[in-house]
Nucleic acid binder design. Structure first.
Lengths: 313, 313
DNA sequence: CGTCATTACGGAATGCGTAATGATA
DNA sequence: TATCATTACGCATTCCGTAATGACG
């Protein structure tokens, strides 16, 4: 069987039509080049070059082999470069899971940065609630998750991306909106409350339950989508507690009121990944996540909404 | 730089996920295989296989390289096979020139045989008068010509493909058609004659001039296309001498009469080729031509008209 | 202790470069 | 005689196979 070097040698000779110049181009002397061509011809059993001590010309079969040999050497050169880029995490596929709420603030900026720093990494997105993200990460079906506590820190590495406060969202004209000051949880004793589903939005559900004094609030609806929740508030069905980034949704007919009890009502968003992950693209992606986490002050003020292809699976 | 053997080795290991079985498949022992993989990884600077003395798995970069390596080895295997087929004349391009009249009898059968015996040889056709075929053959723009004498036997090899007799073609109802016997050239003293152009149909022109006694025949038209000639006869403009295969044109309103003087009026069709030709497909094509020439008895009776792509240049 | 990948080592083969040869204009 | 491909020859490198080692269940 012939070798790649022989193919390279043949291409050089066929292009130069001169063993001396071809040898020079290949950084070798004529004799070994001549021998390599002979071996190549012998191994494929066909005369590729017609040469008579004075001139070199390519046979018909040689023309055909030349075209194949050219493709061969460029493919041989390209393959390692591709492997290197993937190994460096600069190419390949990164599968990101996100919760519906994380999409409002964080996801857009992350995608912008990924596209800027890792343009050859294809990003696949899947909207999943936290528990599904955890499972997908364990199954190796996801590389990076944007999710909320709790999750198992033994299996997962994580970075706190942002914390934001809860806001009380009320219908426009609601009495609480006229207070002109933060609302204390104790003032919500008798209000109608639009509540999170404990099944699909456990984190928010538990957060709100912890925040409100026992027995406060009368649950009039249970939903899992924050957008639905705000729409119900706008329709006058009650009030609700939502992360401040919800304001970027721009739903009209409601007012967002700060809560007096800072700290207890803070919502955390984490980036998390399986420590066993073998995807090289994860390393530079984590660096980008860390960079974004450092200036979390503007989390709720961003209005970036880039075009995103949403790949569900 | 890595070698094709290393690419083959990697493909085998990546598919078997087991050095022992891969080595067996490659007809070698484990140690050199292990070393080749190491060299491959070192040369491209990327870990392709994750192995821990017990299990082998392909890294993400390895997956990408595997796909490239597979393409590489199949391309490497295919290239020599293609070159061999072309060198054997079993693939490639064969450019055939033919005269308008040769197309009526011979060309169709030749193409059928070529397609049957050399299905991977692409045939390009060009209709050219003999002198143009000779020039094109000398210029290397044609591989095989179907033409008529004379041509230079020093530069060209040739095979006599067929000889056919001339026929006198007369309008239906013409007095000569009622004779019921061959017509002697001497009987054409006073007829109106449709004649060949001496410029583009020199062979036929000279043949007819030699055949007719001096002064016989009154030339009423000079044409270069035999079909045109027969049409003029059908229109009553005169009579003409045409090769017998012209009958397959099926032009109505005429009668084809045999000539009494056999031998003098025989038309030869030769296949010819440049002895310097380097096209390997010419060799088997010549064999096919020779095979067709041997049973030339049915030259004029054939009615085969296969679909042909006519490539002029 | 069996399996499987790797390292150690000795011999064969391959490949390079320099020098010599042959053929052509 | 100059040029250019090829052959001859010596040396270094590469590569294989057998044997030994190491790690893991």
């Amino acid at each position: 069987m012939y070798t790649l070097d022989q193919a390279r040698a043949f291409v050089a000779v066929a292009e130069e039509l001169h063993f001396g110049r071809a040898a020079q181009r290949l950084a070798m002397t004529q004799p070994p080049l001549s021998r390599q061509i002979q071996k190549l011809e012998k191994s494929i059993g066909v005369q590729l070059l017609q040469r008579d001590n004075r001139t070199v010309e390519v046979t018909v079969a040689g023309q055909a082999f030349l075209a194949e040999a050219r493709k061969l050497v460029v493919a041989a050169d390209r393959a390692p470069a591709m492997a290197r880029r993937i190994a460096a995490g600069r190419a390949g596929v990164l599968r990101i899971g996100f919760t519906a709420t994380s999409g409002y603030g964080m996801l857009g900026r992350l995608l912008v940065e990924l596209d800027k720093d890792l343009p050859d990494v294809d990003v696949e997105l899947a909207e999943l609630v936290t528990v599904d993200q955890v499972q997908a990460l364990l199954d190796g079906e996801l590389d990076l998750g944007l999710a909320r506590p709790p999750f198992d820190t033994a299996h997962f590495g994580s970075t706190l991306i942002s914390t934001e406060e809860l806001r009380l969202v009320v219908p426009a004209g609601h009495p609480l909106a006229g207070l002109g000051r933060p609302v204390a949880p104790g003032e919500l004793a008798d209000v109608d409350l639009v509540m999170y589903s404990p099944a699909t939005s456990r984190y928010f559900h538990d957060l709100v339950v912890r925040l409100l004094p026992a027995g406060h609030g009368k649950v009039v609806h249970t939903v899992s989508q924050i957008a639905t929740m705000v729409s119900l508030v706008a329709a006058g069905r009650g009030v609700a507690l939502v992360p401040e980034s919800t304001q970027v949704l721009g739903i009209s007919g409601v007012a967002y009121l700060p809560l007096a009890d800072h700290g207890a009502g803070r919502v955390e968003l984490h980036a998390l990944w399986n420590r066993e992950s073998r995807n090289p693209a994860l390393t530079p992606a984590r660096a980008i996540v860390g960079k974004l986490a450092n200036n979390k002050g503007d989390t709720s003020t961003t209005s970036i909404h880039p075009k995103i292809t949403l790949d569900r699976h």
